[in-house]
Design a binder for these strands. Structure first.
Lengths: 265, 265
DNA sequence: TCGCCTGATTCCACTTAGTGGAAATCAGGG
DNA sequence: CCCTGATTTCCACTAAGTGGAATCAGGCGA
């Protein structure tokens, strides 16, 4: 007898699809391959259900089987989707070239990100290096929202309800440091509201500043600049903040110019 | 009364999940945003069903709503998945650095791709340019399997059944040129089997050569080299073929060395 | 080599979750 | 303000999905 608890089905969504997506999301950087058992544990789904869903995901190209180890890894189709996302993003289309030029001009890293649950996802992260061949561009990398300037700038621009919901999740996730962390987050958010940007050094020797980009009818983005192998200081923060705000102004100007292009092909 | 035709459900898969994935796949480069109506047309699904599934996809971060136009676009989470795929790919982990070095050394484009349905998907495409700042790396781009050296090398290495299924799809898709195209494809496949690689010029002024990479327990990959703004010729094909085969040998050697690393973290 | 043992897959009766046509709602333009 | 075209919600229906139990496969130790 199925003891299944109710799923508020009907018009509210689709349970199987939700579960399938959760399975895909169980594959994060660091966990390259997962077997049905591990997936079942992580997603807290019955094993038979997982078995069926992974089969479907394989059939539709989202997962590859690794028969030798009886497990799965993400398949090439997810990369196409990611590429589609980047190509379809009007903001990236406009800001990408500007960001690359600015990275070279200022000799620092420039990034554009948006939120996904409790993480920030880089649409593009341009890693500056004095040697041109060592510069690189990364897309899709995740960084924690509550610990980074990027995430805090994003939070500052979010509608109150959404922000509060997220902050609740940070607390639940890491109750130990919730107090002090929350204070830091609030401070950054106030900084964004007052000065337009916030500065955070969450990795030793790295200083980052970030500012939100808000466009009507589009998700909130955050733009950052960062340098590594430096000594974080007030003065440096202020200087990078200047650069960032000047750049963000140019970005917003460019974005608001041919606004139609944002929504047309 | 639901006139729904049977879906061979049960152990064979999950219909809702299939449909949800098809909706995501409807967003291809070129179609940045889609409304529920267009999605319904393209996927041939009932509108109410699409409405429910898109709602779920939004809730789980795979789609963003564009309320102003009442439609959807791919969301940041798909980019994370793509990044996860790249980070989790043991082959790319090993070959990426080699490919970048080889691109610089030989002054040409180097790419690694795998198949997704009837398209090839670049895990990495390194675009050589004399000016280092203009070099770029792209991931996730799709190119047609039957028209490219990449795709034909891939086909040549596929198990017979899978290859025949795909060739059937090419024919169905474009019955007009099926004859001549099929001959070309077969010729390329024979070239791969005889010489290890095939050469194709499917874009004017661009010549590409490709060879398959087959590893036990992993999907088939194809490695290519290409040059643009040149005059395709037999001699050039042969030269690039030499380079490619030499490089592929090094790749295979590197891959088979620490084989464990392919499957371990 | 053989048989245990762990984990994946398939089976199957149950019923909930999903379906799709129709009605209601919404947004936008004339 | 009403009309129009599209989208969302409603709702009765039942097929599709579910999950526990049985079966199967494959690796390991004896």
């Amino acid at each position: 007898m199925a003891s299944a608890r109710q799923y508020a089905g009907g018009a509210n969504g689709n349970r199987s699809l939700e579960r399938g997506i959760e399975i895909l999301r169980a594959f994060r950087p660091g966990v390259d391959t997962l077997g049905n058992g591990e997936i079942a544990e992580r997603t807290r789904l019955p094993r038979s259900t997982v078995s069926r869903l992974t089969k479907t995901l394989v059939k539709f190209g989202m997962l590859d089987e690794v028969p030798i180890e009886r497990n799965y890894r993400l398949a090439a189709a997810v990369l196409s989707l990611g590429h589609g996302f980047r190509m379809g993003s009007p903001v990236l289309k406009v800001l990408g070239p500007l960001m690359r030029a600015e990275s070279t001009r200022r000799r620092l890293n420039v990034g554009l990100a948006s939120g996904d649950r409790t993480m920030m996802v880089y649409l593009e992260s341009i890693r500056y290096n004095p040697r041109p061949t060592l510069r690189s561009i990364v897309a899709g990398q995740q960084v924690p929202m509550e610990l980074t300037s990027l995430g805090r700038a994003y939070l500052a621009a979010l509608p109150d309800a959404a922000r509060d919901r997220l902050i609740g999740q940070f607390k639940r996730r890491n109750a130990a440091v919730a107090k002090t962390l929350n204070a830091d987050v609030q401070k950054s958010i106030r900084a964004v509201k007052r000065y337009g940007y916030c500065a955070v050094s969450w990795q030793p020797g790295v200083l980052a500043v970030a500012t939100p980009i808000v466009l009507d009818g589009l998700p909130v983005y955050a733009l950052n600049m960062s340098m590594q192998d430096i000594e974080p200081s007030e003065a440096l923060s202020a200087e990078m903040g200047e650069y960032l705000m000047a750049f963000a102004d140019r970005c917003k100007h460019t974005l608001s110019g041919p606004r139609d292009e944002l929504f047309q092909a």
